[in-house]
Design a protein around this nucleic acid. Structure first.
Lengths: 365, 365
DNA sequence: TTGTAAGCGTTATCAT
DNA sequence: ATGATAACGCTTACAA
């Protein structure tokens, strides 16, 4: 026998279908039928429907999500699981910007959200085996964060659990994801520079091979390949990799590159913003002004602590749009539909660090 | 008969306790007992335990949270319902700062969060009858926002549903709440001024009787009453109410008050920040500098658009702490415990708009 | 048109 | 020390 129900926490007086049925003078099945939207298209007396609705409203009936799920129906719950602290004090690592879109789209589609407090201190760590299984309570789940517990996620996916990762994640076969189109966005920024007349453009990137970095370089190269003029002329490498931007990107280095005819620098955005930060500082230290002496562009958004500085030309990752796209993809998955285009366009940000090259368009030195 | 299980989303091929039992050669009950941690302290053969664990690992058994929660009659879900748009684009109206604390504390207590997309555009509006009933899905729920659908909330509370409002809300009898201690915080700010030597201090408040305003005035008066010196000397009213701060708080007005011996102005924080904004502008327009000529304090935090200006002396509402306190109160409610202290202390913000009165401490003109 | 009954995968209460 | 067995609240085939 189950424990006395009044001693069960969180359930005091929560009405069930049986009680609604009693009040309405019908069977519990009928209540389920009426309240469940009658998917089977079974004929029901309008009278009965009305009485059931009235009774349900009077009692404040709400279906139990667990029971619903157990009975193989759906919850109208979408999970959100972050592998980094969900609401960290450091805002820049928060997933709030995504949540803006997730929440809006979820609302639009009639879903509530379950925030799995996965990785916060005190809660179950995402690393713990089985930590991810909690998400099965929801109809489907959104995942985000840098470090994914691959095994667990793979398992979930293999089991056919609807999961969508926010951010490109192709190493997990079969995992659906939505991501920002860094290639196109980067190309657009560089094209902006070539359109202004720049011919010698340098990309400063950090020394790792994350997809986000690779994509940006690809966009950079694409735009250069498509530009008119003496772009392919011999000269210094157009892409500079550095494991330690602060040490390598110095005022002297910038002066040297400018001396070689470089008129524009492009930095990739990373976690730390190291490349941009270093470039920014080095240009200033070299006594150069952007966009007067050189043009500067950032393939992404500036770190928060540089918010006071001049808005860099670049692009913004449409976090809210990504969140919304993720929800759309997830609900499509739930409906058994095919996945759509996973890439979301980034918005070009004109900023004010770019202009024509000092010597006029097309100048190479 | 239920639908073929392979068509049930998220459930394909997941082994259940029954299968583990079969493999281990025990009953399903025993599996539950062993895997469930044996809370009842029932004696079990080490052999049996080992066999069950082995079988579970071999099959990759993972308990179904829905089933678990259905049987256990709780779901470890805490609801969050906001009466204003949950994730509005305008960050200043978002409840994110509260969520930081809510999420951390919830995680610490082993709860996940359900974000009811109640008031967002597209979702069910909070005004709709029955919209609030969705929260019954969670073991308990946090509410926040200015405009509460009283009837629905009252009903929830009357039903014994564990609910906590973030922000003082005494008009709903029996509704638990946590709020910021504006009285103490305001008193501290004013005491800071009297300690500096100010004796003629004016409070500028808007003309409504919201609890938040009343509390601040009370703190203001408390501090003045407790200060040494000729504070009670006759003079202009120490509290000024205005329905239109921008119109009433002018440069001329400020000059007149200063002429009467006022050395410090205090404004309350409101939604619009109107009082502070007006005071700030008027003092500047009067050609006065804070803290050189007058001291200025704000009973709260400055509006976002004044973030660039000098940090006003005042206090900060500890939103994260409030969220955490709300969660603690809610879980206490769930455990059937008494409610604790509902007031959370605000942090004093030194700022840089206060200093000694121009003529030196104690000067009255 | 409505009701009966069989699950869904657990947990908890009994008997053995 | 273990195993039937009855809930938990719901959905859904099927009988009436």
């Amino acid at each position: 026998m189950a424990e006395n129900r009044s001693s069960k926490p969180g359930r005091r007086g929560r009405p069930r279908q049986a009680e609604v049925a009693r009040l309405a003078g019908v069977s519990q099945t009928t209540v389920s039928l009426v309240l469940g939207g009658n998917k089977q298209g079974i004929a029901l007396h309008e009278d009965t429907r009305a009485r059931v609705f009235a009774a349900a409203r009077e009692l404040g009936y709400v279906p139990d999500p667990a029971a619903r799920r157990l009975a193989a129906a759906r919850n109208n719950l979408l999970g959100v699981f972050s592998f980094t602290a969900t609401f960290p004090t450091a805002v820049e690592h928060s997933y709030y910007p995504f949540l803006v879109g997730v929440e809006q789209e979820a609302a639009a589609q009639g879903y509530d959200l379950v925030l799995f407090t996965g990785s916060s201190s005190g809660g179950a760590q995402a690393g713990e085996p089985g930590a991810l299984d909690r998400v099965r309570l929801a109809d489907g789940c959104l995942f985000l964060g840098r470090h994914v517990p691959e095994d667990q996620l793979r398992r979930l996916v293999a089991d056919g659990y609807p999961a969508v990762h926010i951010g490109r994640r192709e190493e997990l076969d079969g995992l659906a994801w939505v991501g920002a189109d860094y290639v196109a966005a980067s190309a657009e920024v560089v094209r902006h520079l070539t359109d202004l007349g720049h011919r010698r453009i340098l990309l400063v990137r950090e020394d790792d091979d994350a997809p986000a970095s690779t994509d940006r370089e690809r966009g950079f190269r694409t735009a250069l390949a498509g530009a008119a003029g003496p772009l392919s002329a011999a000269g210094p490498a157009r892409v500079v990799r550095t494991a330690d931007p602060a040490a390598d990107i110095t005022a002297a280095w910038v002066r040297a590159r400018v001396g070689e005819g470089v008129t524009a620098f492009v930095a990739e955005e990373t976690d730390t913003g190291g490349a941009w930060r270093a470039l920014h500082a080095a240009v200033a230290a070299a006594g150069l002004d952007a966009p007067r002496d050189v043009s500067l562009a950032l393939l992404g958004s500036p770190p928060a602590d540089l918010a006071g500085a001049r808005q860099p030309t670049g692009f913004d990752i449409p976090r809210a749009a990504l969140g919304a796209a993720a929800v759309r993809l997830l609900t499509a998955l739930l409906a058994g539909e095919e996945r759509a285009e996973p890439l979301v366009a980034c918005g070009f940000r004109p900023g004010s660090t770019t202009g024509p090259p000092p010597g006029g368009p097309g100048t190479t030195v």
